[in-house]
């Protein structure tokens, strides 16, 4: 009972603190913008821990965060092996292949107008489809190991990157193209010096959307068959054994990997498109 009351009090205090912080002059500063969501996240964890322990929720339904952290700490070697299998081998390889392929096709589509007119509607259509559904087919073709997961990821990331790159290659406006013509620039020079740089915000938009898709594809594909390691394999088997602390530990790994992947791409974007209005004034 004390645990429940304690966590509820913590909630109330944190709420009050956040309301005060948001209204204070700290709200505009970087510290304030970091502190408020951090307090909110901490409150959720405390509530979770207090309520689960206080109400004695069985761990086969919801383990408390401390149990998840403990499980995480003792099984780092398994988690690391799963991470390498699913993220590094499956997701990253597929992401790289898919991005390069989409980029190449986008360049071809940009070169031939008919191709672009046909490719763009088909690509946007495909990007909205439940492509994870191809996983059983690709697992059948490429076997249980990471190659089939990479193949699923290739198909999943291909269309968003393609559509965004094709859009981006049209982003340079007529005035800028005219300027390149007055310089007597060849089409290749115009492409390299004007249109590719101008396309980069769009390209990175596609690349950022695809980071999450890559991870989802690699994990879900493992539900259709995998060697005895990998994040999706671990999640589905540990769920079957009702070892939910291990499942949550894998989900923590997936969340960290997803955020780090997105963050890395966003960081590269900031370096590449430093000139774009959305990147200015961000230190």
């Amino acid at each position: 009972m004390a645990l429940i009351a304690g966590s509820l009090v913590f909630w109330a205090v944190a709420w009050w603190l956040n309301v005060r912080l948001a209204a204070s002059r700290w709200a505009g500063t970087a510290a304030g913008r970091l502190a408020v969501p951090a307090i909110f996240g901490l409150t959720l964890l405390v509530l979770w821990e207090g309520l689960v322990r206080g109400l004695q929720v069985p761990s086969v339904i919801l383990p408390p965060p401390s149990a998840i952290a403990a499980r995480f700490a003792v099984s780092t070697d398994i988690l690391w092996a799963d991470f390498v299998q699913t993220f590094v081998k499956g997701a990253l390889t597929g992401y790289a292949i898919g991005a390069v392929a989409a980029f190449a096709v986008a360049l071809a589509a940009d070169r031939w107008e008919v191709l672009r007119r046909g490719m763009l509607p088909v690509g946007s259509f495909m990007a909205a489809l439940p492509i994870v559904g191809t996983a059983p087919i690709l697992v059948m073709w490429f076997g249980f190991d990471w190659q089939s997961k990479a193949a699923v990821v290739v198909v999943m990331v291909f269309f968003p990157i393609l559509v965004n790159t094709v859009e981006g290659l049209r982003a340079a406006d007529a005035m800028q193209r005219d300027l390149m013509i007055t310089y007597a620039a060849s089409p290749v020079q115009t492409l390299l010096k004007l249109r590719l740089p101008a396309a980069m915000p769009f390209v990175f938009n596609g690349l950022k959307i695809s980071t999450t898709l890559a991870l989802i594809g690699a994990i879900v594909a493992e539900f259709f068959g995998s060697p005895t390691l990998g994040m999706g394999f671990r999640i589905s088997t540990e769920v079957g054994r009702l070892a939910l602390d291990m499942v949550w530990a894998e989900i923590v790994v997936a969340a960290l990997a997803g955020s780090a992947f997105y963050g890395a791409v966003a960081l590269i974007e900031r370096r590449v498109t430093f000139w774009h209005p959305s990147q200015r004034g961000r230190g």
Binding site: A27, V36, G41, V132, T212, L215, I216, E250, A255, G258
Partner: peptide
């Protein structure tokens, strides 16, 4: 806004689908 919004945005980079089986 200041509490929830950063988490809502961050959660889009997380493969939420992994939670489905559980």
């Amino acid at each position: 806004d200041m509490s929830v919004m950063p988490w809502a945005i961050a959660s889009q980079t997380i493969p939420i689908l992994a939670l489905a089986p559980m």
